[in-house]
Amino acid sequence: MTVPAGSSATPVTGASPVAALDDVTLMYGDVLAAHDITFDVRPGEFVSLIGPSGCGKSSVLRAIGGLMPAATGEVAVNGLSVTSPRPDEISFVFQDLALYPWRSAVRNVEIALQFAGAPRRERRERALDALTRVGLGDVANRYPHQLSGGMRQRVAIARALVSDAKLLLLDEPFAALDEQSRLNIGAQLIAILEEEGKTVVFVTHSLSEAAYLSDRVVVMGPRPGNIREIIDVPLERPRHTSLMREPAFHDLTDRLSALLYTDDEDAP
């Protein structure tokens, strides 16, 4: 919190956190993946996790989503300890998207409703609505291989938006896209999420993406990861790509990059 407090727009401070991690340790078998992880995510907030490869940032995300148990400490979502996936409260978008190639775009979105037990008649309508919100209403019947990378990305996002879950976990979802598309899709995503009052935890290794999209950035150190610093992003919303040419933006990315790349002597 070293950057002067700015007017980060959406987050409601003072409200009880959507996600809370308290002194969490994560293990892969006998291997320590991350330790001393403590932070909150407030309602409506967009929090990014950045850090070098293998620092455990994806593990932290998986722990929030109930895919990985905390070895010690506690992970809570909406006040309840997370032990398994909670599809009605938490939705995921993965780096590899995990779209089902034999299903059309709309049926890829419907499957979330099918697993959630939504009535058959509702599914098509709600799935089409979610696709329309991400701008894909006209390609609902195409198959993933008939869509561009950016469109597939948005199908995955539509699938995460179609449930009523308020907490969205995104694991490097734009990694496969070029810099320009990733910022464009990121900006679109922000607009949709703000409209729908979603809370987001976003894992990325792109400093500019984290700075451009987030309200706060959690910077993690190299493996086994812990939190170096949590930085407030003092940039006004709505943000435009022109922001990236402004000095305030560069100050921020410089600061993030200094945090990420300095203490190499600390690396194990």
Binding site: L67, P85, F92, I111, A112, F115
Partner: peptide
């Protein structure tokens, strides 16, 4: 079967 597909299904309640 791609484990990612199965993990995604779990997160959707499947």
């Amino acid at each position: 079967v791609d484990p990612g597909m199965l993990v995604a299904a779990r997160t959707m309640g499947g």
